[in-house]
Design a protein around this nucleic acid. Structure first.
Lengths: 221, 221
DNA sequence: ACAGAGCGTTAAAAAAGTGTGAAGTCTTTA
DNA sequence: TAAAGACTTCACACTTTTTTAACGCTCTGT
């Protein structure tokens, strides 16, 4: 049986969710504002968190950020329409998925199942894009079985880019992932590390493309 | 801080694992046989389980099977060589990964991190109008799965129009959204950007219609 | 038909963003 | 404490984007 934590300021919404979840065998606890939600999360160790973005006081994003400092619990965001930008931020910080109010009960339960199901096809602890292999286990990157000698920052950078290979990763996303929890301002230095990484990648079928004003994209041939 | 449960009959192995895990900030509990392990799992609700396959009495596979009846906790299998068939069975039942004894501490910790961090697939927030898809997370726009190469301003412009697809968006609204927080006066330049955008959209079922004196409207066929 | 307003289009100037080398600072290691 | 490595900062050339400006078109009302 799974424990679910609901963080939402509207009582009606909490009651609805509680009924829904309990009918599916969840054990449910609630919080009506952010600070309380964090305490509940720490105390009850829920298996999944349903977090409303539009919280008064400590906002939903801030709650998520603090939660992610010590917990990897799956988080499903509840948002209203016209919060696109905030939803994007939430996913960047580390939310797992979101539903838009009003939502159907079937959709909610389905998404809960998805983010909770950590089993299923075993994925190897490596990320592959064309001839590039990023081995998270051994902290090692290879192109065509040739090991790249990377610094920690370069490895983290390559990891983020490879996770989203073929798609744009914004500079904000990169900075958040690579310099997570650090105070320095790498907005300038990002260019330098990209430069170093490109040199080490060489001309071997992997290249990092810049999307001016947006971010970078890793392309494999 | 994560809780780990060790289920192994060899005391030496349990001690080794406990030291390793505690040095990395885990809270550790142990069980020396299967039945006891299941009780511990139910009581302590660990965040990860390290399960020895070669348990006396209730075998490792049986423990895993019963555990999976009510819990999705990540399980790392500890096996000795020459248990390939059993390892495969374990993965089929729902184990997340395995290490083969003897194993290095770095490898064990890395695999623990991986299986704990594993999440379900995310769906990205996107706006859709006919064949047009605007992906806010990746800052990408597609028409019929063909990616458009847009500048930041063009993307923001297309986003606003697509959000209100089929309806008129006044020039004031557009300027406020796209040039939010900027001091420049784009009232003239808006025409230029509309022009650029139209060229990139081409003739693929999406067009931007002008409503003279009012604003623009995005039409999808 | 004409004047004026709004719009589409093009080109060039201005601004913003990027690549790159090198020097400087910090941290780790012996 | 010194040396090595990694990260950051800085300067400057270069590229892309954005803004500005100019001109011709269409539409509308007189």
């Amino acid at each position: 049986m799974s424990k679910a934590l609901i963080i939402d300021d509207e009582q009606q919404m909490r009651r609805l969710l509680r009924m829904l979840l309990e009918s599916r065998g969840y054990e449910v606890c609630e919080a009506n504002e952010g600070q309380h939600g964090l305490q509940e999360a720490a105390f009850h160790r829920p298996d999944v968190v349903l977090l409303d973005l539009g919280l008064p006081g400590l906002g939903g994003l801030e709650v998520l950020r603090r939660l992610r400092e010590w917990s990897d619990v799956p988080v499903l965001i509840l948002s209203v329409r016209d919060q696109e930008a905030t939803k994007v931020q939430a996913l960047e910080i580390g939310a797992d998925d979101y539903v838009t109010k009003p939502f159907g009960s079937a959709e909610l339960l389905a998404r809960l199942n998805v983010i909770q199901r950590r089993r299923g096809p075993r994925h190897t602890p490596e990320i592959i894009a064309g001839p590039l292999k990023v081995d998270l286990l051994h902290h090692e990157a290879q192109i065509a079985d040739e090991v790249l000698k990377l610094t920690p920052t370069e490895f983290a950078l390559l990891k983020v880019l490879t996770e989203h290979a073929g798609r744009i990763v914004t500079q904000n996303q990169i900075v958040k992932q690579v310099w997570a929890g650090q105070s320095s301002d790498p907005s300038e230095g990002l260019r330098v590390h990209i430069n170093h990484l490109r040199k080490k990648l060489g001309d071997r079928g992997i290249r990092i493309v810049n999307e001016p004003g947006i971010g970078y994209r890793l392309e494999a041939e």
